[in-house]
């Protein structure tokens, strides 16, 4: 069985845990909280570590719960959308009758054209500019790959709220990627 040595956790896994948390929470401050709460929880649960998983995998499992807890707290504090209407960013895209205000430009092939590091930076920047609750629901769905049913249950929001948040987040992200150079003549 692998021995757990709490004294090495921060040095060996701190950066890794922070990056995982940062990617989900889009905030350095919240990510730091998540790492600290994870290590504290691990400390009091270390008697239950069976050695089946590596220490990093075990810590990451605890971290995932902490991330969801933090997101849930934020969602409770935020005002959730009630319906499709009333979102200015989406309003601007459409005319009153529900038609597109402007035709959409085609995208090139970002995967081939963009350096991966450049792409990563743009995705991250755009996600950071989403409203916090939207960014988090978006991350849980598109980055962590949770089903919307799980997201609703974990965050205690209605499916309608979930769809509205995801719809707005996706349109915003699309717009943001386009403004950052992903619109080129070509495919898609």
């Amino acid at each position: 069985m692998t021995e757990l040595d709490p004294h090495t956790w921060l040095a060996e896994h701190g950066d890794y845990l922070f990056r995982v948390a940062r990617r989900q929470l889009h905030s350095d401050e919240l990510a730091e909280d998540a790492v600290q709460e994870t290590l504290l929880a691990a400390l009091s649960a270390r008697a239950r570590y069976t050695g089946d998983a590596s220490p990093r995998t075990w810590l990451t499992g605890i971290l995932k719960h902490k991330i969801v807890d933090l997101i849930r707290r934020q969602v409770r504090e935020a005002e959730l959308p009630r319906d499709q209407d009333g979102d200015e960013a989406v309003d601007l895209l459409f005319k009153q009758d529900g038609h597109w205000a402007e035709p959409l430009r085609p995208w090139g092939n970002p995967h081939a054209e963009a350096e991966l590091s450049q792409l990563r930076r743009v995705l991250e920047e755009c996600a950071d500019r989403l409203k916090p609750v939207m960014a988090q629901v978006f991350s849980l769905r598109e980055v962590a790959g949770l089903e919307t049913e799980e997201i609703c249950k974990e965050l205690d929001i209605t499916p309608t709220n979930c769809w509205v948040l995801l719809h707005r987040a996706r349109l915003f992200m699309r717009q943001c990627l386009e403004l950052n150079g992903f619109a080129r003549a070509g495919a898609a």
Partner: peptide, 26 residues
Amino acid sequence: LNRQLQEMRRLFRAEAAAEEDGTPGL
């Protein structure tokens, strides 16, 4: 728009699957 939403998901999933490196740590 529908194609672009699918493409965006593909990019995000590919990015999430990549190594957790490029970004700064603690």
